[in-house]
Design a protein around this nucleic acid. Structure first.
Length: 197
DNA sequence: CACCCGATTATCT
DNA sequence: GATAATCGGGTGT
């Protein structure tokens, strides 16, 4: 696996373009010297102009990272039990935005992932936003505001772009407002993409 | 301080 | 496919 970090400027573009271009890239988690990694196979884009975005109604303590430096993480806690991982990404014209990572295809440290998420058999290991954070021990406390463009405990490395013909898009999952914006992207036919309704 | 609801998952039919 | 679990954050009194 070649280890080339992604530049800050990659994240300083329209959020939906970053979401598409993140497909195929590799998320790396380093825990006690162990390396866990997964290929991004499904993403969603959220911007402050869009009613589905946590930042739509302005900055609060929870959503502050979305307004801060691009290329850093925004981790939030949802439904009393799950964490979701975003990477702050936006064109400088807007105040806030990020890309939600919805699914990964494991590429390294699969045994460690299974230990962290014993109930995640088969594709259930990382085929959902709350599942992949559990399999990588990503929590709000341990992984908020991490710069993923720098080698550390959580970062992203470059990989060849996914061709447009291998990519699909559609409405985002689990939201009420903003359903008409088709900002969910996934690698067509990849079995690790989440089951959605 | 009370109320409402959520960028989900596991489990059951 | 349908639904319960479960509690922090955001909003308004």
């Amino acid at each position: 696996m070649k280890k080339k970090l992604i530049s800050r400027s990659f994240f300083e573009r329209d959020t939906h373009l970053v979401a598409q271009d993140l497909l195929g890239k590799i998320v790396v988690r380093v825990l006690d010297g162990k390396v866990i990694a997964g290929k991004i196979v499904e993403t969603e884009a959220y911007t402050s102009q869009d009613p589905a975005c946590h930042a739509f109604r302005g900055k609060t303590e929870r959503t502050a990272p979305l307004f801060e430096r691009v290329g850093h993480t925004y981790v939030y806690f949802i439904y009393s039990s799950h964490f979701c991982l975003n990477i702050v990404s936006r064109n400088p014209d807007i105040p806030a935005g990020g890309v939600l990572l919805r699914a990964l295809e494991p590429v390294a440290g699969i045994n460690d992932m299974q230990e962290l998420r014993p109930q995640g058999l088969g594709y259930n290991l990382t085929n959902g936003p709350g599942k992949l954070t559990q399999a990588m021990a990503i929590t709000k406390d341990s992984c908020s505001r991490i710069d993923v463009t720098q080698s550390g405990s959580l970062y992203v490395i470059d990989a060849p772009e996914v061709a447009p013909t291998d990519m699909s898009y559609g409405p985002r999952v689990g939201i009420s407002a903003g359903r008409e914006i088709p900002w969910r992207f996934w690698i067509t036919g990849n079995p690790w993409v989440s089951k959605s309704k």
